[in-house]
């Protein structure tokens, strides 16, 4: 009985705090969920030209986004992709056209590469190299001043990070093209 008397304070506090936590959860859960989704949707207009918002769909178990224009017509795909970088995982958003035949844009969601060197893969100088590239054959990384049709100019001093980003793009596009084709989602 003595223990119950001493424990009643803890129990009362637990109830009080539990109730306040439940209140906080109810009040904020939707906002947090919207924040998580917004992270991706906010990038869609920049990744696929003409798109104003996106719609999430499931293709072969992974979430991809249709890029829609103002009238709701699909103008492309936005695919989240991730893979091993030099230091840790790199997360990307790849913008593709409707046929997944050309890359429209690239955006780095998160990376933990070396600051000042590998982190330069987030800069538009590097990412612009992907725009307009065809996805028919895998891309490669080069250090030549004028890259060819299937080549991306690497960031100076960050060859491994640049190569990692390219590999992630290659692997995910190959996967996506086969998944979309098999799901008969590709439209002219």
């Amino acid at each position: 009985m003595k223990y119950l008397q001493q424990a009643w304070l803890v129990l009362a506090l637990a109830l009080l705090f539990g109730a306040s936590l439940a209140g906080v959860y109810v009040a904020l859960a939707d906002k947090i969920q919207a924040n998580k989704l917004d992270e991706t949707l906010r990038q869609i207009p920049a990744l696929v030209e003409g798109a104003s918002n996106g719609q999430a769909t499931e293709v072969a178990g992974r979430t991809v986004y249709r890029a829609l224009d103002a009238e709701g017509k699909q103008v492309g795909w936005v695919v989240p992709a991730s893979g091993q970088g030099f230091a840790d995982t790199i997360e990307l958003l790849i913008g593709l056209d409707c046929q997944a035949g050309n890359i429209k844009g690239l955006y780095v969601l998160s990376q933990k590469e070396t600051p000042g060197l590998g982190s330069k893969v987030t800069e538009s100088r590097f990412l612009q190299g992907f725009a307009g590239k065809s996805t028919d054959s895998p891309l490669s990384v080069t250090k030549a001043a004028s890259p060819g049709a299937g080549e991306i100019l690497a960031v100076t001093g960050a060859t491994v990070s640049s190569e990692s980003v390219t590999q992630i793009v290659n692997k995910n596009i190959t996967q996506l093209r086969s998944e979309l084709a098999s799901a008969a989602q590709l439209r002219p």
Binding site: S140, V141, K143, T166
Partner: peptide, 27 residues
Amino acid sequence: FTGVDRNLKDAFSKNLNVPATPISSAT
């Protein structure tokens, strides 16, 4: 030690299903 896990990962994963991305150096 940075980057050690990257090569370990390559050594362990079989059949990456990705064509090798060659690095061509102009010089």
